[in-house]
Design a protein around this nucleic acid. Structure first.
Length: 298
DNA sequence: CTATGCACTATCGCTAACGC
DNA sequence: GCGTTAGCGATAGTGCATAG
């Protein structure tokens, strides 16, 4: 994948994320390359908004208008893609960046544990095939009839499968990155609170809808796990309390960025079913071990 | 006593220059 | 081309003086 294609796929990226994705050891090299692409108007950059740490604001990079045009002419982007769909300025910056960090950590899993491969689909990717209404393959829409008929619709941030070639086994995961911007459980049964998300996934499981990924990836899955990456330890606690009250909940696993960065995604960083008193689990089971990213030169 | 303003400091990202 | 380093710049936190 070229740098421009990655910028389209990931919407917004920091210099460090790009260095990780491209396997470049120095941030300076990344910035030079991006500066060159920015002069050619293929890339745009701006200072990161809210959610940054103390020091100087970090720059984030996104594909520019001319970059989108170039990828279209090369036939890499689907015909009819408009720049607005890829433009990082239109994305929820911090949400997208955290999702990207998850993907980078996930890529690292298969290099630490070569017996594993990972296949992932991101709802924000412009490369996914879309239907007439612009809905991508990862978006869900189905009917349930509990009392009266109801339409359930939701879009996970990402869907991925980890395959263990040694044990010939695949596990399916859905990912929700939670920035704490929506309410946990609104009194008026809001459609967009986190409680509704849990209900949606519970119905999804009951209706066996996840099995469509068996056809897509030509494997068998015995259920799935819902991974929730909360943006802070405090938010994680609030979500854990809600999850605990909503059985069946054993399929819902929770973590936060600090645990992800310090241990890596294969570490014992996941709280199951909102039960924080229980021992933390690893998404790779017995292959549990550290996979934190190695430090990069600044 | 509390609120406000301001200088100082810590921390972090960015760039220029240099060597390979 | 890539990687390293020093110095610069931008920002947030801290402590202190002053005003009300």
């Amino acid at each position: 994948m070229t740098l421009l294609e990655q910028l389209a796929e990931y919407r917004v990226l920091t210099a460090e994320q790009i260095a990780r994705l491209r396997g470049v050891g120095s941030l300076q090299v990344v910035r030079r390359r991006l500066g060159q692409l920015a002069r050619e108007k293929l890339v745009e950059s701006w200072g990161r908004g809210f959610g940054r740490r103390r020091g100087r604001p970090e720059k984030v990079y996104s594909i520019g208008c001319d970059g989108t045009d170039l990828l279209q002419r090369r036939g890499v982007l689907p015909a009819g893609t408009i720049h607005d769909q890829i433009d990082g300025r239109k994305a929820c910056e911090n949400h997208q960046l955290l999702l990207n960090w998850f993907r980078i950590h996930l890529d690292y899993v298969s290099s630490v544990l070569p017996q594993l491969t990972v296949k992932l689909l991101s709802s924000t990717s412009p490369f996914l095939s879309r239907d007439g209404d612009g809905r991508s393959v990862v978006s869900e829409s189905f009917q349930v009839s509990q009392g009266r008929k109801r339409n359930v619709r939701f879009v996970p941030d990402a869907v991925f499968a980890i395959t263990d070639h040694k044990h010939r086994k695949s596990v399916l995961f859905f990912l929700e990155v939670d920035m704490g911007t929506e309410t946990v459980a609104s009194p008026g049964r809001g459609e967009h609170d986190f409680r509704q998300k849990i209900l949606n996934y519970q119905l999804y499981f009951k209706a066996n809808r996840y099995r469509r990924y068996e056809k897509l990836w030509v494997t068998t899955f015995s259920g799935f796990r819902l991974l929730v990456l909360a943006n802070s330890a405090g938010r994680k606690g609030a979500l854990a309390r809600l999850i605990q009250e909503m059985p069946p909940n054993d399929f819902i696993w929770l973590t936060d960025p600090e645990l992800m960065f310090s241990n890596g995604l294969t570490g014992p960083i996941w709280t199951r079913g909102g039960a924080r008193q229980d021992a933390s689990a690893s998404i790779v089971g017995s292959l549990c071990g550290p996979s934190a990213l190695l430090p990069l030169k600044r």
